[in-house]
Design a protein around this nucleic acid. Structure first.
Lengths: 353, 353
DNA sequence: AAATCCTATTGCAACGTTACAGTTCTTGTC
DNA sequence: GACAAGAACTGTAACGTTGCAATAGGATTT
């Protein structure tokens, strides 16, 4: 009887020749165990119709020879890419934001079979373009985007096309979706309260770009707290955290030299705060004396600024991890509620010389 | 005559139904042009044995319907992944280094069919592990690594296994490979010369971790210049740019309070310089008066430190682009010489208040 | 007019995987 | 003892691509 017409994969031959051993495939295991390829495939994914003994045997052999499913094979057959795409603007701000985000995502994906692919776009392009690319070419199972707008075309697009995604920031467009956000409203409120407690009266807000969702949040918290504390705002003309560092410094100096200069700042971003501090000092004023600054920070660098300064930490690495879990949750069909998280600011910390 | 037994891909049916149009494949184009799949495949890659008219017609149709080769199909068939893997330590230093590197790589890869995959590892793991993973699973066509050691096991491993790669930093192990590096030797030399010109006598070096290649380069330039200028070194005990920011600040303060404190610093990294400045000021000394600092910077943030400070810019975005071109060059078999580049520091710049 | 040689095109097979539709064998039921 | 039912396993086909060997048809040579 022709006990086995299963061909031994040329594996053995190649290996004996001492050359580069081509990686083991299902066929290799099938040959080694004397089973069919299909059985091996199912045994490895714990399908119920495979006998317990067989399953164990297959899994043992697979582990022994270091079998890893060929991604291209799986992808071609199932359409599943095992890829999460992080869509990034390459004209991105200065600072470690992207680094930390990537670290956070990477760590969360590490124990999974997912790879992280960076999909860039530059300011010149339509922000929708990279997203469309990923959707059209089905080159990822899920997408993470940041710099969210209240009415974000990317969110609409991916929702309509059934592409799982998570956003770093909330939207306000009547579409439920996974997100992670920092409570910027609470932040700016606390910042104002801190400045009020310090006796400051005329506050300026270094706000995010006005098209982004968290602009509103931060503004609202700022405005509400101003009202409650009976303080007034000194408008920061046209400046946002997105300005070039040098430009921002100049604007700050100019602002400080006006008759009704602010005596307190709430800063919406870590890197911008350096410019703020420099701008204030350049105008001849002293922090902790003429003016106080409360800033968010995503690194620990502001701790090193010797002028007295108040900071609230935003953990971007954590955000990355949350976002990764959110997309994965979406992909595996978990219910929406568990995929939406907001991290709240800890109390304002003072770092004094 | 059965003019065509080519089956129309269910494309049309699906599209007519108004549902999600499955992306066009070679089969789609073959059906539309009345040609065979093979012909279409070859026509699209400008194979010489295809008639000019046919080629043009195929390419036109392909463009019209927005055909994009299915990556999984190509990858399964050819083994080519069209992926470049960036291997990263997720315990990475503070600051925008990784961001800029990724931006640079992304921009260089944008006009190519290559995707950028981030392959992380944490300090607890063997640094060789992620590299081995990529090689064993053939999950990338090329690899970029940083934090290079003079005798780097990853370089050895990838060379032995024929995996194209480029390194951010040089090695000294008798293996030729593509790299990009910053001339840290020239940098520390120029830094010392600048400090000498300012009349400083006792210099300290905030060096990179001693296992890394550029530690030697920076040290050599420092030592040579010290000798030439007849200056002496004040050893910076155990401190490297890899220390935690806070620790580094403390060490600096301690150093400054010793009897033979330095009157000049050469800093090997941007983020560490913040700690240096803070440490000096905490000890009660003034920059530009008691002590001068020359630092590398990879962002523009140091420009904002108001104490007088001297900086040399290192363009990490450029490094990323160079590295990307180097791996791609390696993959396409370009000769080694054109894949090795060193960027030289511009003159020391002063940023004064 | 036959043989030869190109040119342009073709189908088949295979990469590694999984869905599907069997097939064999054991066990239990009447 | 016949038969149904389930358990355990199997082969075939297909995802989209490209290398290979083959072929049809026309032009060129003999």
């Amino acid at each position: 009887m022709a006990m086995n017409d299963k061909t031994p994969p040329d594996q053995s031959a190649a290996q004996a020749a001492g050359g580069e051993a081509s990686p083991p495939t299902l066929k290799t295991i099938a040959f080694m165990t004397g089973l069919g390829v299909t059985t091996v495939s199912r045994a490895l994914k714990d399908a119920p119709e495979i006998g317990a003994a067989t399953r164990q045997r297959v899994q043992l052999v697979a582990k022994q020879i270091g079998y890893r499913p060929n991604r291209a094979g799986v992808r071609l057959r199932t359409g599943k890419t095992n890829v999460i795409s992080l869509v990034l603007n390459t004209e991105e701000q200065i600072g470690g934001f992207v680094s930390d985000l990537i670290y956070g995502i990477s760590e969360a994906l590490a124990p999974t079979p997912y790879h992280l692919v960076v999909t860039p776009y530059s300011r010149t392009n339509d922000p929708l373009e990279p997203v469309r690319y990923v959707v059209e070419t089905a080159s990822a199972d899920g997408v993470i985007i940041s710099h969210i707008e209240p009415d974000d075309p990317r969110v609409r697009y991916m929702t309509e096309h059934g592409m799982p995604f998570a956003t770093h920031g909330r939207t306000h467009m009547g579409i439920e979706h996974p997100f992670h956000d920092f409570d910027n409203r609470a932040y700016s409120r606390e910042a104002v309260e801190k400045l009020a407690a310090l006796g400051r009266k005329r506050l300026a807000l270094l706000a995010p770009p006005s098209n982004l969702s968290y602009y509103r949040h931060m503004r609202d918290g700022f405005a509400d707290a101003l009202m409650e504390q009976g303080l007034s705002e000194v408008p920061f003309p046209t400046a946002t955290v997105d300005h070039s560092i040098e430009e921002l410094r100049k604007l700050t100096t100019e602002l400080m030299l006006r008759p009704n200069r602010p005596d307190g700042f709430v800063s919406g971003a870590g890197a911008g705060t350096f410019a703020l501090v420099a701008g204030v000092e350049d105008a001849g004023f002293k922090l902790g004396q003429d003016v106080d600054i409360v800033s968010k920070q995503t690194s620990k660098l502001l701790h090193l600024l010797r002028p007295q300064l108040y900071v609230v930490n935003e953990d971007i690495r954590l955000a990355g991890a949350e976002l990764a879990h959110a997309v994965l949750g979406r992909i595996s069909g978990r219910d929406m509620a568990s995929l939406q998280s907001i991290s709240h600011p800890r109390a304002v910390e003072a770092y004094e010389a």
